[in-house]
Design a protein around this nucleic acid. Structure first.
Lengths: 195, 195
DNA sequence: ACCTGAACACCGTTCAAGT
DNA sequence: ACCTGAACACCGTTCAAGT
């Protein structure tokens, strides 16, 4: 499968630049978790002790910073997908994937929105993350359609959007992840019982 | 059922104030539709030809303005719910409600988010709209559970959140409502076919 | 009672000057 | 090659002065 090759490992950087890069990612991870993905860029720069210009040099858009912040979690989620592919019950594996993916999107408020947007935006820095989640979901869905009893008419794009949508609700509900867990069964089982 | 009694019909106002009030709602309706519910307040005031202070006097929060803007559509949606309650097939009525409610949330980008937030916020000016949609959904769901084959374990809150979530996805997908229509069947039928 | 618009705070983003 | 931070643009919100 596609190995993780974040931008920060490809290109060599001057030592002070690398220090700033890493520091900015660490600080952004904190602030995004505390305040959501729309935390002031200025605050991130300030807490990292650099000028705003430095922040924008490394990460021209907010999404570029967000992509760096979630890179590791995306790796973990992808690993989880591979694990689930070895689960004997294909339907159950798909259900567990929905749970894992929803939890992942809960890293910070606003992530679900950025991920969905990147689905429709070729040039987004989050595109790689989006694609990997998409691919992982596609495999699990296909297997559940062939070996299990997942309906044929749905595809990975629908899967991805539904997960993002549920994560989005969880973001603004006071009982957070609990609300996501109330919603997910409706996706797995459906509101109307099959004949 | 609860009759529509918008704030602007209860309290008498000086003629110029009333003119400004109505103008602001009309202008906001336009701008929200064009640019989404986060259109600059200043632009609304400017296009209406009033100072920002006047706007804030009538509508202390953005949501107060949004509530006034969607009041009519909420009435229409509620009427649609009553109509659907007379439909013979209770399951089909519920399905059609999902479609109607999703379309309604598509009035402007950002509406779904405000509606969901108001669900968890007692004091929100959108609370009344939220409650009416909630109530309408509850009736249709209950009937489908009793007369039709809707699953017992879901409630109106779940219904409301799922509709908002689907509308939210539609807002940021390039193919708009079409994507909502791809997603809704997954809610009605469910991803995994019942035994 | 209501309106006006200047004023302030806040934030994203750029860029000239530095090392 | 990279950093700094002043500067600008933009927007939400308030409030003193007006009618």
């Amino acid at each position: 499968m596609t190995p993780a090759t974040p931008a920060d490992q490809r290109r060599p950087m001057r030592a002070d630049a690398r220090r700033n890069y890493d520091l900015l990612v660490a600080v952004a991870t904190e602030l995004f978790r505390e305040q959501g993905a729309d935390a002031p860029m200025d605050d991130i720069a300030k807490r990292a002790g650099v000028g705003p210009g430095t922040l924008y040099r490394h990460f021209p858009h907010r999404d570029a910073l967000l992509a760096a912040v979630v890179a590791d979690s995306i790796d973990a989620l992808y690993a989880r997908a591979e694990e689930l592919l070895t689960e004997e019950d294909a339907d159950e594996a798909l259900r567990l994937w929905l749970v894992a993916a929803t939890r992942h999107a809960g890293i910070c408020r606003g992530l679900a929105a950025s991920l969905v947007s990147s689905m429709y935006d070729e040039g987004s820095p989050l595109r790689a993350s989006c694609d990997r989640m998409h691919e992982a979901g596609a495999r699990l869905l296909r297997r559940a359609q062939q070996e299990g009893s997942a309906r044929e008419e749905f595809d990975a794009a629908v899967l991805f959007e539904l997960v993002a949508a549920v994560a989005w609700v969880a973001e603004r509900s006071t009982d957070g992840l609990a609300s996501a867990e109330r919603l997910l069964p409706a996706l797995s089982k459906g509101l109307i019982a099959g004949r």
